[in-house]
Design a protein around this nucleic acid. Structure first.
Length: 481
RNA sequence: UCCUCCUUAGCUCAGUUGGUUAGAGCGGUUGACUGUUAAUCAAUAGGUCCUUGGUUCGAGCCCAAGAGGAGGAGCCA
């Protein structure tokens, strides 16, 4: 018995004339009373392999079971195709149906489905061209992340998923407990007694691996984490998930400028990697976006195609803009003067809203923007204060269509300043003792950033809803699959 | 959490001013067809009009509440 060959490998190196065994899922079957054409996809590539069955040689009853969605095993001779549309095809000599798919029940049809419908059948949507392409690209991006950092001499650090620290301040957390929710042990003053819980303290799913990353950087110099992150925010948008993957590099002896350089280089590397390694899938996704935008009004369509947008990222330097400069641009902008912004910019110190970030990226600079040196009042406690005493060395990278894709900063390495800031912001100091000790013992300037992996995926695949770039999205009210 | 919109056949959607028997395309089924490319052609089956309550002689259509979905805002990555 011949060994099963993946369709991707057959197409890379077709061995014309050889007996070939293929296994996969039927996309369509066409034909007439003499011959049937079966398009088989095994997920190894977006391309199908066409199997050709002579109706005189293949059992008719068996062929009836070959329907869209069925799993088949087909062996036969690989030949140059007589028809147009494919270079090679398989002449069926042996056909087995490994798994039937009743066509009256199987929900995927050889036609366009809405993304909303496919989300409702998340267990089957990987079998579509679109999601097959997305998940193959996703794998390549995961691999590229590790390759980039490994090649640069960074070490991957696994930060904990269950955490007892509650001071990261990055959002609402999911509690982790083994206590009986209906009858938890209570302390004398009526509070839940977490000292009786599994870990002996209140624990949650992590909202960020950054603080642990800093501990790593202050020992191994250059580290990165790449793991799941959980936010219990009731966010219902196209760019938020309750469970998402985040990449957080942390580098000793990096100042803010070095941090920006690394982030820009990293993003360009990832996009270039996709273009170099996922072109079949990107071409399909490119076409998908064009089709999707055909029904939109002219002004809502993208000026560039998906692949052009990816190339644009690589070819252009990101615009680096000081917060103070950005406020000036916004203050004097048309939408601000004509009061088109929902939130008007009137003074230094204002937090930038989505509409402002959009304006800067999509209308004013027309390229990715790195905003830095934000007012300290609107940023986290761990960011390093500038000498002006007003701003901190924070930086956000804003992408067209996505918004904030990277958030980072140079960290406050000065013990006294950090301690004062923790006090100022009412963060319980006792839970941060281990973090403060890194500043007490051999502190060093260091920096890092976080990249939302699914936001990167949205950008690379052109998918507008973040729920469509992760296999099983977790959003408020949705964890069925 | 707030605002706006949507929910009719397996899917995508139409359904006029509230009026009698609910419409299309795709998909399914059956048949035709000498190599098809989301094949084509013909016939055919398929409905809790999201749920509950109300208004009305009469509700897919109007009103209220609820459920689910989408987009935007906030939170952020």
């Amino acid at each position: 018995m011949a060994k099963r060959i993946r369709i991707k490998d057959i197409l890379i190196n077709p061995k014309i004339g050889e007996e070939t065994l293929v296994k996969g899922w039927v996309r369509t079957k066409r034909g007439n009373k003499n011959v049937a054409f079966i398009a088989i996809n095994d997920g190894s590539t977006i391309k199908n392999l066409q199997a050709v069955a002579d109706l005189e040689k293949v059992d008719e009853g068996l062929l009836k079971l070959v329907t869209t969605g069925a799993c088949v095993s087909v062996s036969g001779q690989l030949v140059a195709s007589e028809g147009k549309g494919q270079t090679v095809e398989l002449i069926v000599s042996k056909l087995d149906v490994l798994g039937e798919a009743n066509p009256e029940e199987y929900p995927l049809q050889p036609k366009k489905h809405s993304l909303e419908f496919l989300r409702e059948i998340a267990h089957l949507r990987p079998r579509t061209n679109t999601f097959g392409a997305i998940f193959r690209v996703r794998h390549s991006m995961i691999f590229a992340v590790h390759k980039f950092f490994h090649d640069k001499g960074f070490y991957n650090l696994h930060s904990p998923i269950i955490t007892g620290s509650d001071a990261e301040g990055a959002g609402e957390m999911f509690r982790v407990t083994t206590l009986d929710p209906s009858q938890p042990p209570k302390t004398d003053d009526g509070q839940v007694d977490f000292s009786k819980d599994f870990f002996g303290l209140e624990t949650n799913l992590t909202v960020s691996g950054q603080l642990e990353g800093e501990l790593g950087a202050l020992a191994l110099s250059d580290v990165y984490t790449f793991g799941p992150t959980f936010r219990a925010e009731n966010s219902n948008t196209t760019r938020h998930l309750a469970e998402f993957w985040m990449i957080e590099p942390e580098m000793a002896f990096y100042e803010l400028e070095d941090n920006m350089d690394l982030a820009e280089e990293f993003l360009k590397f990832l996009v270039q990697y996709a273009l170099n390694n996922c072109m079949d899938d990107l071409e399909f996704l490119n076409q998908r976006v064009i089709e999707e935008e055909k029904v939109m009004k002219q002004e809502e369509r993208s000026e560039l195609s998906l692949i052009e947008r990816l190339q644009f990222i690589i070819d252009n330097d990101f615009e680096r803009v000081d917060y103070t400069e950005a406020i000036d641009v916004l203050k004097n902008s048309n939408p601000n003067k004509k009061k088109k912004f929902k939130y008007l910019i009137d003074a230094w110190g204002a937090d930038l809203q989505s509409e402002h970030e959009r304006f800067l990226v999509e209308k004013h600079f027309k390229k990715p923007v790195i905003l830095y040196n934000y007012p300290k009042s609107i940023k986290a406690f761990y960011m390093r204060q500038n000498e002006d005493n007003k701003t901190v060395r924070a930086m956000d990278i804003l992408f067209p269509g996505i918004g904030e894709i990277v958030g980072g900063s140079q960290r406050e390495e000065r013990y006294d300043v950090l301690k004062a800031r923790i006090k100022e912001m009412d963060i319980p100091e006792e839970s941060m003792w281990w973090y403060l000790e890194t500043r007490k013992f051999g502190t060093a300037p260091h920096s890092g950033f976080g990249l939302g992996f699914e936001r990167l995926m949205s950008f690379v695949t052109g998918m507008k809803n973040i729920r469509d770039v992760i296999p099983f999205p977790r959003t408020p009210g949705n964890a069925a699959f």
